[in-house]
Structure formats: structure tokens, C-alpha cells
């Protein structure tokens, strides 16, 4: 029987009494090896409450296990911020003004993406206990990792705002709305990758280690600690677009453009007087890039859901 025919309610027998009408309202769930992506999305939407519950317990667990809880979860990102600031700002003396803000604006999105993807990769294996016992759209687990990571991004944003107030560094207020497509694109791409990798990790358990390594390399392919326009673009020349094919590069650039604000900065070193630190593009070009990423992300998400659907049927037996 085709899935479409099966999804329709069972034929009711007998007359349509009141009780029968109530009975018919019961949802019919079909368990079979083939479920269309559309049906999967409907199922995920139905279980959205579970998603928010998973995110809130995840956060609760993260900071209930220690007294300083929430603070601890901020230690790792703070540490990387500190190290990069020390190495690039102090030791290598790159002398960008408010370098911390420049770093932070890029790291904010990168941390969202990388912790989301790496925790999503592990999530199904980690939660084997529930995957083997209860039926619910398993994609929710990967989505909850991305969601958790997004919540931590908001916590970090609060810290970033504090930094900006202290350093009296204001963002580019006009471009502030650009952060919305940037967050959206990051979330969608991270969700797509997370869903794909979480399924792959069930079959290939070292996927989670592999992805850590890939993410480390990926980080250096994003202009977080260096400047794309002044350091990469001159070397690549006409091939610069290749660099921008890394979806996280335009996202990081958008964030820096909005939060760091300055495209051209005056340096304090004697050799240079000023530097074009960010591309001199208009707000519209950022919007275009991010919109393309959203669309590409949605396509990727569709592929991920399809692949996930194929692999999902065997999760309970592989775990």
C-alpha cells in the first residue's frame, strides 16, 4: 500500500454516530519503512513541545551538575576568546582596535555552529536509552542539540553586550536586522548537518571524533581570528569566491559587519596607517549572501531528512 493511501484514516464502518465521530478524530500513525519527508516534518511539528522540553532539560542538566553551573558552560568559549585575543592581539600585535569585539562577533556564530553540530552528532548514541524504548521523531534529538547551542549563543550575546558597553563599542545599528538571516542560516545549516551526522554516527561510531577534527580545520577556514579582506582576498584575487563557498565564512563576515561595525580601521602601528578589515560591501550584498545560504540550507535540510528517514528505521537495532 502506498504511504499516501495509508495515511488516510481507516474506513469507518457502520453509521456515523456521535461516538464514532469522536473516534475518528484519533490520529492514525503508520509505521512502515517508507515515510515521506512531508509526513516527517508534520510529525516533528506535532512534537515541538518535546523539542522545547529537551532543550530546557539539556540546559538544566548542564548547569545543575555544578554550583556555578551556567558559568561553567561559558568557560570554554571564554577561554578560546581569551587565547585568541592574547595570541593575535597581544603577542602578534595585530593592533585592530577593539580586537576583542572583532573576535567575539565571529566566535559567537562559530561556537553556535560548531557546538551544535558536534553535540548533535553524538546525541542519538548518547540517548540510546530513549531511542530504543520510545517512538518519537528522532530528528528532534538533533534539533534539540542545535537549539541548546542556540540558547548558549544567547547567553554569550549577553556577555558580548557587556563587553561592548564597557569598551563603548557600538554596533552598526542600521544593519542590525541582518543578524536574523545570519542566525537563521546558521541554524538551518547546523540542523541539516547535525541530522545527517547524528544518523551516520549510529553506524560509524568514530564519526563524532572525525567531526571534531573537521570542525577544528573548518574554524581556520573562517575569518574569525584574521581578516578576510586584508589577508585572504589579496592572495586569492579572482578566486576569492572559493573561500566564500564555505557557508560559515559569509555568516561570520555578516556578524562582524554588524557587530564590529567598522570596515576600514585606523591602526596604531607605524608601518600601516589604516586597513580595510572587512569587505566594503553594501548591506544588500550581505543580505543576498545570507538568503542564498538559507535557501541552500533548506535544500540540504531536505536531503538530510530524506537520508535520516532511510537510516532511522535501524537505529533501535544498531544501538
Amino acid at each position: 500500500m502506498s504511504p499516501d493511501a495509508a495515511a488516510s484514516p481507516l474506513p469507518a464502518t457502520g453509521d456515523e454516530t456521535g461516538a464514532r465521530a469522536v473516534e475518528r478524530a484519533k490520529p492514525v500513525r503508520v509505521v512502515s519503512a517508507r515515510v515521506s519527508v512531508r509526513d516527517r516534518i508534520v510529525e516533528i511539528w506535532r512534537t515541538r513541545e518535546l523539542l522545547s522540553y529537551l532543550i530546557s532539560t539539556e540546559i538544566k542538566v548542564k548547569y545543575k551538575n555544578s554550583a556555578l553551573g551556567l558559568l561553567w558552560s561559558m568557560v570554554a568559549p571564554a577561554m578560546s576568546l581569551l587565547i585568541f585575543w592574547f595570541v593575535f592581539g597581544v603577542v602578534l600585535k595585530n593592533a585592530y582596535p577593539s580586537f576583542v569585539i572583532y573576535l567575539f562577533s565571529g566566535l559567537l556564530f562559530w561556537n553556535f555552529f560548531s557546538t551544535g553540530v558536534s553535540s548533535a552528532t553524538r546525541v542519538i548514541v548518547d540517548r540510546a536509552g530513549i531511542v530504543k524504548k520510545v517512538s518519537f521523531p528522532r530528528e528532534i534529538l538533533a534539533l534539540s542539540s542545535i537549539g541548546t547551542s542556540m540558547v548558549f549563543m544567547f547567553f554569550q550575546t549577553a556577555v558580548l553586550i557587556l563587553f561592548m558597553v564597557v569598551l563603548q563599542h557600538s554596533p552598526d545599528w542600521h544593519l542590525l536586522p541582518l543578524l536574523i538571516p545570519a542566525v537563521l542560516a546558521t541554524a538551518i545549516i547546523a540542523a541539516a548537518l547535525g541530522i545527517l551526522l547524528s544518523a551516520a554516527n549510529v553506524y560509524l561510531r568514530d564519526m563524532s571524533h572525525l567531526i571534531e577534527i573537521v570542525l577544528q580545520a573548518w574554524f581556520w577556514a573562517c575569518p574569525v581570528v584574521y581578516s578576510f579582506w586584508s589577508q585572504i582576498q589579496p592572495r586569492l584575487g579572482r578566486l576569492s569566491f572559493v573561500y566564500l563557498l564555505n557557508p560559515m565564512a559569509p555568516i561570520v563576515l555578516t556578524s562582524q559587519r554588524v557587530i564590529y561595525g567598522h570596515t576600514y580601521v585606523h591602526l596604531t602601528t607605524p608601518e600601516h596607517t589604516g586597513i580595510q578589515i572587512l569587505p566594503p560591501w553594501s548591506g544588500w550584498s550581505y543580505l543576498l549572501m545570507d538568503s542564498i545560504l538559507v535557501v541552500a540550507g533548506l535544500v540540504l535540510l531536505w536531503v538530510a531528512l530524506t537520508v535520516f528517514g532511510r537510516l532511522e528505521g535501524n537505529f533501535a537495532e544498531e544501538l
Partner: peptide, 23 residues
Amino acid sequence: CICGVLQPSEGEIRVRGKLAGLL
């Protein structure tokens, strides 16, 4: 399979109403 934790390799199961399982 009835609970939907495993997917059958062939055939299908139609479940009508809310199902709670204790596997």
C-alpha cells in the same frame, strides 16, 4: 514495531489513537 521504535522491513502497521508502550 507496533510502538514504532523499530520499522518493519516490509509491510506496515496502522495505529489508531495514542499509544503508550512499556518495552
